[in-house]
Simulated scan of single mutants.
Amino acid sequence: MQAAETTKSIRKPTNLSLDSALLKEAKMLGINVSRSAEAGIAEAVKLHKQRKWLKDNARALASSNAYVEANGLPLERHRQF
């Protein structure tokens, strides 16, 4: 969520249904529920995008890994480690 914090974003009021006991505890602890919900949603979006990218690119990754297994790294002789 760092990118969202460094740029000005338009905030939109939203209604959420939350567990009442959890909401009460969060308020007692002084937790900013809106910011915490936003952080949780941002993390869920990030994870979803990661999984989707891996799924969408699975064939290319498998092909690349198979090539390296069969032939080694293309410029391996130039590696200094």
Rank of each mutant, 00 (worst) to 15 (best):
A42S: 14
L18W: 01
L22G: 09
G40P: 03
A26H: 04
E38W: 01
W53I: 06
V45G: 05
V33T: 07
K24R: 11
G40D: 08
E43F: 08
A39H: 05
K27E: 14
A42T: 14
V33I: 12
G30E: 05
N15Q: 11
N32Y: 01
A44V: 10
V33R: 03
I31K: 00
M28I: 04
K52Y: 04
R11K: 11
S20K: 13
K27C: 07
H48A: 14
K46P: 01
N32C: 11
S17Y: 07
L23A: 14
E38C: 08
S20C: 12
L54M: 15
L54K: 13
E43K: 10
P13S: 04
L23S: 07
I10G: 00
S17R: 10
G30I: 04
M28G: 07
A44S: 09
K24Y: 13
G30N: 04
A26N: 04
V45M: 10
A37H: 02
A37N: 04
I10E: 00
D19A: 13
L47C: 08
A37S: 10
A37F: 07
R35P: 03
S17Q: 10
L16E: 07
A26L: 12
V33D: 02
A37Y: 03
K49C: 12
S36F: 12
K24N: 13
H48W: 06
S17V: 14
L23M: 14
E38I: 05
L22N: 07
K27Y: 01
K12L: 12
E38L: 05
N15A: 11
S20A: 15
Q50V: 11
V33A: 03
I10S: 01
L22S: 08
T14K: 00
E43H: 05
S17N: 13
R35A: 14
R51D: 10
I41P: 03
S36Y: 10
S36D: 12
D19Q: 04
S34W: 02
S20V: 14
I31E: 00
G30L: 07
G30T: 05
A42E: 15
K12D: 02
S17E: 13
K24E: 15
L29F: 12
L47Q: 14
A39D: 12
E25N: 09
S36T: 15
A21D: 13
I31N: 00
S17D: 06
S20H: 06
H48Q: 11
K12P: 01
D19Y: 02
Q50S: 12
R11G: 03
K49E: 14
I41V: 15
N15T: 03
